[in-house]
Amino acid sequence: MNVMKNMEAIFLAAVVLAGVTSAASAASANAHERYNAQVSIEGKQMAVVTVTAKRLSAAEKAAI
Rank of each mutant, 00 (worst) to 15 (best):
M46A: 02
K54F: 07
K44V: 02
A58K: 13
N36L: 11
A26P: 01
M7K: 08
L56F: 14
Q45S: 14
T50R: 15
K54H: 10
K44F: 01
V39A: 11
T21E: 02
H32R: 04
E60S: 10
V3C: 03
A63L: 12
F11T: 07
A9G: 06
Y35P: 09
L12Q: 13
V48D: 12
S28V: 03
A13Y: 00
A53Q: 10
G43N: 03
R55Y: 02
T50D: 13
N6H: 11
A47W: 13
A26I: 09
A9W: 12
I41N: 03
V51H: 05
E8W: 08
A29T: 03
Q38F: 06
Q45V: 11
T50C: 00
R34Q: 14
L56M: 10
T21K: 06
L12W: 00
L12R: 11
T52R: 05
R55V: 04
A23E: 08
A47G: 06
A53M: 09
N30Q: 04
M1P: 04
E33P: 00
M1G: 12
V3A: 12
N6S: 14
A23W: 08
H32S: 13
Q45D: 03
S40P: 00
R34M: 09
L56D: 09
V48L: 15
V48Y: 06
M1C: 07
A29L: 09
